[in-house]
Amino acid sequence: MGTLARLSWLELKLFLREPLTVVFSLALPLIILFVLGGVFGNEPSRPGEQLVYRGVGAMDYYVPAYLSLVVASVCVMSIPTHLAGNRERGVLKRFHASSVGALAVAGAEVVVAFVLSTVSAVLLLVAAALVYDFDRPDSVLGVIGGFVFVTVGFAAFGILLGSVLPTARAAQAVGMVIWFVMLFLGGAGPPPEVLTGAMQTMLDLTPLWHAVKVMQDVWLGLDPGLSWLVFAGIAVVSATLGVYFFRWE
């Protein structure tokens, strides 16, 4: 077993020892589904109305969008706080002195984010299937591939935040702000068609909106648009800057 595998396993065990975080992580997809779904997405669109939800039913729109949203939650709120906190407390320095590489540290964040996101996603899908009626995925393999793509991309974004922000407190605050902005202006909250002017510009600037479209494209079998490229670009830029800004202490 390599350092990455060992460190990932260790981090997962540590995560499970934080009962509050575990409860929050498990509750989050359900809150997203039932609270957000209750506010924005219970009504099926009727013919003749303004075209919203990219022209599909509300829940068909929201279920894949929420998959991207749970990934964003894990990567934007947990990873930066964890990474910055470990640097602030001197944990990273301890790892560094014992030859744990930066790739192992970052890789373990990605693995943990992937596991948490997957658990959240499965929970969300099961709960959604029990309560709502929505289209089954156009291609299960496509959905899995899209999910991995979105998770790795968002994890890179989270690692960048964790590398740039000096303290756990700063990372938590900034992560929260970004998450809320993305929640309201990232296509997983109010339908994008109702956002106007500056909000529409914000929409195009949020990584979440592109991740939402990626998941919807694979779920609904839509033609893949530019969002794939944009999101891949965000991921590559984040990873590059993350490497540049990464500090052990």
Binding site: L10, L14, G90, V91, K93, R94, A97
Partner: peptide, 8 residues
């Protein structure tokens, strides 16, 4: 000055 994860 260094530390380990609290719950390790």
């Amino acid at each position: 000055e260094s530390a380990l994860p609290e719950r390790l």
